[in-house]
Amino acid sequence: MVPYLVVKKLNKDFESSGESFEVFKDLNFEINSNTSTALIGESGSGKTTLIHLIAGLESPDSGTIKIGDFDIWKYSEQKRANFRLNNISIIFQQYNLIPSLNVLSNINFHSQLIKNYDQNFRDELINLLGLSKLLKKYPEEISGGQQQRVAIARAILTKPKLLLADEPTGNLDEENSTKVTNAFEILQSRYNSTIVIATHSKKLAQNLNLKLIIKNKKINKI
């Protein structure tokens, strides 16, 4: 199998109140295409930071992150943004819905932007994630769990090559978590996407192909 995501010698420090904290030291790992990976670790271990580094939202101090042939931190912000727009979908902990658009427009937005909008798949996702009654509502009018499902639908609808999800079931009950897991399975099986999920949920992690644990600034396979 060809590795799709390759992280080499990744170093990242944070500065807070004048003090420096090392998050990652010489981090190395590979993830194959068309697989699902769970990023596991304690709170504050750096799961979200790693997602941001892979997505090109936050810059590393050193090291390389390659997604396919694209060395994401080698290029300009413009090219990085363009790559992200067309290849990566991110599910954020805080959902990141666009406040001025209603639920339906939020779901459609990203896929319409990159012109791979698929109405049938959209309807399928809406039904699967139980969003059909919320379509005309605005983000501030729905609950946190509902917002999270909208964000998941938006990310999956783009059929991304790489899906990065940060605690996607953190605010969901068991029934809705199962629906989300099913949606991820559809994405991987039908559209050959590579999925990386940062999660605390053992149940979600169990169903994924690979489990990586972040501990003491390093990453290891379980």
């Binding site: 997505a55 939202l57 912000e77 413009q78 943004a81 363009n82 790559f83 992200r84 727009l85 067309n86 990566i88 991110i90 954020f92 990141n96 819905l97 666009i98 937005f109 990203h110 932007l113």
Partner: peptide, 9 residues
Amino acid sequence: PLWALGITR
């Protein structure tokens, strides 16, 4: 959110 989606600054 738009920036995170990939719309440049």
